[in-house]
Design a protein around this nucleic acid. Structure first.
Lengths: 209, 209
DNA sequence: GCCCTATAGCGACAACCGTCGCGTTAAGAT
DNA sequence: ATCTTAACGCGACGGTTGTCGCTATAGGGC
């Protein structure tokens, strides 16, 4: 008997499995839109997807798992950091995006935050998501340095600058649950830029080579 | 028949009622310490307090309600904003307090945040709590202005300054779940001060009288 | 002390949640 | 076309959650 050529992974991602996945993810989106992150329940998703509860539990474990998979599905569409020609403009645009994502009904970002308190996978996915975004955004700072908008005597810590610029938006909307202030994105961006120009995020050039 | 003199409120806050309350709140603290905000459940609190489940549900409604009452009980002990002699020192001290409150095990602040996604009362209480704190902290800015640390040509919006200074700490610890950075409180405070000195939080003096 | 009644105790309940074992279906390889 | 078995469907289960109607207890005004 010839050795059977090894099965790639012994998985079956196609056909029915794939169909079930799209049904379930669609159901997640629909439930989220209809009843918000509070009404997002495993039972509800399964019923709406026309799939058995046990299936959802087996493949996604908990609500966090569903959201994580939704990130995966959405993450395939690329995101690009804004490029307006000035650091302040870029950060403002970024903040506007963030404010929109936290304000839209329903907010996927808020759902993920809520889930991250109950679900380990959701927590990890959230950290991952923001980390990636911030990494992508570091180019904003590099561009600003190249344009001469920032002091060049010392390197500017891009991550800290980005966090300083964006954190107030989250703070106001999530923690303080303030009504969205249309000027906040720009104010927060401007403040961060001023601080950066004053050298607030400069770090000693670490020894090269 | 003589009109019976009106009972003050027809409530009975004393005696057994008060005893039950302290038992329950003690149980909340204990459960929180033992199993964190994730393990804080109505059932568990009731059992530990030696009280019937229905009683806890009736009086506190949900986990959020318990936390809210805990704030009330703790809120009676006064909190004072730091006063170190400089704006930067004050904000750094404030940030250190915040970082400590988010890092301690278990963290009441984190528990309240988690609950605020499920419980309306918890959400309101959270907003209220931070609002009060920020209102109290505005004196920091006033003192700084009086000391001449900030530009006086225009008024500085204390609230925005405070949020810019403190938001990064929440952001790092809650959203990004980064490991606590001992330098962050100072860095964030310093950045906010620099921005403020550059006029980032100045607002047009609104026309008095 | 004696009432009145606010509040707590109690047990039952329906709903939901998550898991399990087992039978069925249909990918995907030959 | 056939076979193997991954993935799903199904129903049942034990545990938890939140509510309700009722009874018992005790606070506090008289």
């Amino acid at each position: 008997m010839t050795n059977p050529p090894p099965n790639t992974t012994d998985r079956r991602p196609g056909g029915r499995t794939a169909r079930v996945r799209t049904q379930v993810l669609d159901a997640v989106r629909a439930e989220l839109a209809e009843s918000g992150h509070e009404g997002l329940t495993m039972e509800g998703v399964a019923t709406r997807a026309g799939v058995h509860r046990a299936t959802v539990y087996r493949r996604w474990r908990d609500v966090g798992g569903l959201l994580v998979d939704l990130i995966g599905a959405a993450g395939e569409i690329a995101w690009e950091p804004p490029d307006t020609g000035s650091l302040r403009g870029d950060l403002t645009a970024l903040n506007r995006e963030i404010q929109a994502s936290l304000t839209e009904q329903p907010s996927f970002a808020v759902a993920l935050m809520a889930a991250s308190f109950h679900s380990e996978q959701a927590a990890r996915a959230q950290t991952q998501l923001w980390d990636d975004r911030y990494a992508q955004c570091e180019v904003l700072v590099e561009r600003a340095v190249r344009r001469g908008e920032l002091p060049t005597a010392q390197r500017t810590d891009a991550r800290n600058l980005l966090i300083a610029a964006t954190a107030p938006v989250y703070h106001q909307l999530v923690l303080l649950r303030a009504v969205p202030d249309p000027d906040l994105p720009e104010r927060a961006a401007a403040a961060a830029v001023l601080a950066a120009k004053a050298g607030a995020f400069s770090v000693p050039e670490d020894g090269g080579t």
